[in-house]
Each structure stands twice: as C-alpha cells, then as structure tokens.
Design a protein around this nucleic acid. Structure first.
Lengths: 229, 229
DNA sequence: TACGAACCGAGAGCACTGCTCTCGTTTGCC
DNA sequence: GGCAAACGAGAGCAGTGCTCTCGGTTCGTA
C-alpha cells in the first residue's frame, strides 16, 4: 500500500521529467545547464524547480550519479557478455564500452571526467559508482590470475606505493599482487586519457581512423599488463 | 623609431595587466572567469575591457595560448637540462615537469585539458603550442633510436593505424617507426590521464603517496616503450 | 468528515553575468 | 592646429541562480 501515494508518485515523476529535460539540454547546449531553460521547457516558472531540487548543483549531482551508473552498467555488461576466459577480449570489450558510452553521451562524460566545476564538490554518493569501470577492468586481471592465464609481473615497487596499492587491493581485490594492480590502473588511466583526447578533440585531426587507433592503444596496455593474445 | 609609440605601449601594458588580473582570478575563483570582476579589480568599468578584448572568449584564448607556452617551456626545459643519453631520466623529467606545472597552475591546466567550453572552439593558434609536450616526449624516443639506446618494437599495426601514424611521423619525426610512435603516444596519453586524475581529485583519497605513485606509473610507460633502466 | 499542515506553482525581486551603445574626453598622427 | 582614432564611463538589455511571498491544492489525522 503506497504510504503517501498520489502526491509522492507525481513528485517522483516530476523529478524524473526534470532530469530528463535537463539531460536533453545537457546534450544539446553543453555543460552549462540553465535551470530557467529547463523550467521553460517544462512550462514552469524557474522557482518551481526548487520544489524538487534545492539547487542547480543538486540537479547536476543527480545527473552525474545516473551517468556514473549508466557508464558502469555499460562497462560491466560488456565484460559480462564476453567469454570469461578470453581475458584480452574482455579487456577490449570493457574499453570499447566505455568509449562507446562516452561518444554517445559526450556532455555527460564531460560532467563526470571533465574539469570540476569550481564551487562544486562531488558528494560521497558518487565515489562508489565512479569506481565501477576501473573495478571491472581490474576484475579481469584478478580472474586471469585465478585461473592461471595471467602472471603477476615482478616489478619491485617503492614501499610507499606498494603500501598504498596494498590498501586498495585489500578493499576490493584481496590477494591481488600490487604490481599487477599498478599495471591495471595504468591501463585505466590511459583509457581515460584516450577517451578524453578523442572527445575533447585534441587528436582528431591527426588520426582519422579512431576506432582502430583506440583498439591498438588499449591493446598496448593489455600487452603491458600481460594479457595473453 | 616607435611607429605608434606611447599609446601602443600603454595599450600593450593594459592588455598584459588584464591578462595578469584574469590569471589571478582564474587561480582563485576557478574556471568561470568574470569579465566584470576583472574590470572591477582594475578600477575600470566592464565595458572598458572590450576596448582590449572583443569578448570574454578572446581573453580566455589569450590565457590559453600563454598557458600552452608555459607548459611547453616547462617540459622542454626539463628535458633539455637532463643528460641527453639518459633516456629514462629525460622521460621522467618531462613527465614530472608537466605534472609540476599542472599542480602549480590547476585552473590553467583545466583550461587546457578540461572539458571544452560549449560554445568555444580552440583557434588554430593553439594547435602548435599544444603539441609541444608530446613532441618533446616523442623526441626522447627519436634520440634514443638515433644513438642505438632504444630499439623500435616489432608490433604489427593495422594498416590504417600505421598509415595515420606514418603521416604524423612524416610531419614531425621523419623516419620514426610507427610502432614506437604509437607507444610514445600511449605514454603521453597516460601522462595526461595521470595528471587529470590527480588534479581533478579522483584517486587522491586512495593514494596518499602521489609523487612516488606518479613516478612508478610513468615508469611503467617507460617500460612499455622500452627505455633502458 | 473536517481541519491543519505540508506541498506546490506563480510571480516579483535581488545580485550577478556578457555584451552593446552612446557620450564626452583624451591622445596622437598628418 | 585640426581631425580621427582610441578611450573610459554609464545606461541598458537579456540572461542567470536563487529567495521570498502569496494563494491554491492535497493529504494525514483527529
């Protein structure tokens, strides 16, 4: 039985519609979202929006959260639908999924990974969703290690780095060797750089064949990690 | 003989002062630069700024250009003051210089490498200065190849990728093997990702020892490239 | 079932933004 | 010396995020 039903339901619908309209504006007009424009699109007055979101930043936060979840879903789904033992295939699938999502939602990607808005501080809610893509990628390494298809590299890390990585491993991948984690994070870092360069238009004029270039670059990181061909 | 002297000099000084004040605002208030605030700081009325810059975007462009040059200077200087034959030392020096500059000028770095401003399109003037850091880094590889301290990897690239890279090589590093260029670009891409992650605060809470982590991560890319220890 | 409280949308208003236009004044070249 | 270009100030326009007030609706509860 719906506790506070009708009102609560239309309220939830309103919130969804505001987010949808805002997302549309984000896609067309770019990052600087105008609350007033969203309100206009909904046939409302700007102050009415404040019944649902206490500020423009809160609206942005809601969009960011959903975007993180969407990106995480895409990456995890791509990984999950690839042969568990095909480590390299999973790596490429995850990378491509992230890129595809970013190319399909450039403004939202910029919201997630672009320059942070000055006054804006990402709330803690966003921390976990933001970790899903890198966790997926490192998960591939863990699986490879588990079934013997992947060997941990013998890098000797400086002690502070090893300790930091050990802390991370303890939280997410108990037992994962630090050198392997380090290489996996390098792969994730490079993936982010690849997508950002492409999306923010810094290499486009130099590299026409972006799909093939992307695959080759992520393949290089797969080599660095040691994923078998 | 100063063609149009006093007035022109005063004008140039005004332009410099506006840029200086704007840069200060950028550093304190973040990316959304307010023309009016700059004008206020200079004891002027906002419309007076328009005598020197046709729009806020033009002011930003001027700042971006100078920032690119500053970053390029820093990276090139770091490389130039390292033993020519110490390839790995040069690589690390260039990477650290880029990171140090970014940490010292976070707002300007965000201007260069953050999400692009919606309406704003980077003018062609910025293309060459923007290429200085990656060119410096690939230059290290070229030097290493020239004096035999570095061997070109035997990656076989997909033909379109090889062709794109060959085009780039032809323009900047004639004769540089495409597989080596590809790995160098992977290094540059990862460097950008590393700095962005650190600056935009995505890994900070997980990795306290950032300096050591940074060096290790850039060292991994040096390994991938084949720079001798 | 009636009432009070919570919720909601509209509207006015504040301080701010980029930018334009006009109006005197100053400046410097022919 | 005169004239045009350059200059700074001011008013004003359209837009922004956000606050506050005012009526009207809705809902939980007594």
């Amino acid at each position: 039985m719906p506790a506070s039903s009708i009102r609560a339901r239309v309220r939830a619908e309103m919130i969804d519609e505001i987010k949808a309209v805002a997302r549309r504006h984000l896609a067309t007009d770019g990052a600087n979202l105008s609350l007033r424009a969203v309100a206009r699109d909904m046939g409302m007055v700007s102050s009415a929006i404040y019944r649902y979101f206490p500020s423009r930043d809160e609206l942005l936060t809601a969009l960011i959260l959903e975007a993180y979840e969407a990106l995480g879903d895409a990456v995890e789904a791509a990984d999950a639908t690839t042969d568990r033992h095909d480590l390299r295939g999973r790596w490429h699938a995850a990378c491509r999924a992230a890129r595809d999502w970013a190319l399909a939602h450039p403004a939202e990607y910029a919201l997630l990974y672009g320059s942070p808005v000055p006054g804006y501080a990402a709330p803690d809610d966003t921390v976990l969703p933001a970790q899903r893509p890198p966790l997926t990628m490192v998960g591939i390494l863990r699986d490879g290690l588990a079934d013997g298809r992947l060997a941990a590299p013998a890098d000797d890390l400086p002690e502070p780095v090893r300790a930091d990585l050990a802390e991370i491993a303890a939280g997410f991948f108990p037992g994962l060797p630090e050198p392997l984690l380090a290489r996996g994070m390098a792969g994730w870092t490079q993936l982010f750089g690849l997508i950002s360069f492409e999306l923010f238009g810094r290499v486009n004029r130099m590299i026409p064949h972006r799909d093939a270039y992307f695959d080759h670059q992520t393949g290089l990181m797969a080599d660095l990690i040691g994923l078998p061909r």
